[in-house]
């Protein structure tokens, strides 16, 4: 697509209540959306609040809503998302409180990782001490492959902002926390499977997921939280039906 000489960028300014400000930003080759935001803050309006750290798709801190869709802005090229007339619309992530401008408050997102027991609990050392011996985990085993499929999450909250169920039910744990729980349920070294399955069950947990797969569609790391949630449902279904819990 031919690139326009300049971009017309609408940027959300303010908190929950606010409005769009418009900026004209020079278009450049290989420009990312984060480059655009940085240009605005450094050259046009130093009061603009936004968040980033690594700039290479590792830290998960620069996610925003770009033209209506949650994306990691450091790895999103402008030419892939810009309209024909050079229009870009930037908002903070949806489904989260707005701190200011493009910075959303991720505290509720990470609180839910805790609620979903998204932390490793060594099986033979419940107090968190180092276990006495190594556990042999065959990399090709089914459980380990399930766990490996979900462990590259960078916690960017793109899935959480894209999830309809979070929008409908603010208590819903969300795709990332449930994906994390599923990796731990498949970790043979972990000793808190029962508690964790209790934590992720029910209306605020995996059972509310509609499997519409926006999380899987939009995960910048190409993870599949939707399948992880389906795995939790399957495990809880059989455990409940067979009286194992």
């Amino acid at each position: 697509m031919a690139e326009p000489a300049s971009l017309k960028v609408s940027v959300w300014r303010g908190g929950e209540q606010g409005d769009f400000a418009r900026y004209e930003v020079p278009a450049r080759a290989n420009q990312t959306v984060l480059d655009v935001v940085t240009h605005i803050q450094r050259e046009l309006d130093p009061s603009l609040a936004y968040r980033f750290a690594c700039r290479v798709g590792m830290c998960g801190s620069c996610a925003m809503t770009v033209n209506g869709r949650a994306r990691w802005t450091c790895r999103t090229h402008v030419r892939k998302v810009v309209g024909a007339d050079g229009e870009l619309e930037l908002r903070p992530l949806a489904n989260l409180p707005v701190i200011r401008d493009l910075a959303a408050d991720l505290a509720p997102f990470f609180d839910k990782w805790q609620r979903a027991q998204g932390r490793f609990q060594p099986k033979d050392a419940p107090d968190g001490a180092v276990p006495e011996d190594f556990v042999v985990v065959p990399p090709a085993s089914k459980a380990r492959r399930e766990a490996d499929a979900g462990i590259e999450c960078i916690g960017c909250a793109v899935c959480y902002a894209s999830c309809d169920v979070v929008a409908w039910n603010p208590d819903y744990l969300g795709p990332a926390a449930l994906n994390r729980a599923w990796t731990l349920v498949n970790d043979v070294r972990d000793g808190a499977h029962g508690d964790r399955l209790d934590a992720v069950a029910g209306d605020a947990g995996c059972h509310s997921c509609h499997s519409t797969q926006s999380c899987t569609e939009r995960c910048p790391k190409n993870l599949d939280p939707s399948s992880a949630i389906a795995g939790l449902k399957r495990r809880l279904f059989w455990d409940t039906l067979l009286g194992r819990r």
Binding site: D198, D203, F237, T240
Partner: peptide, 16 residues
Amino acid sequence: MSTRGQTHLWVVQRVT
């Protein structure tokens, strides 16, 4: 309702 009760509702819905 407890999460266990909610899980049972879900199981009942799938079995039905």
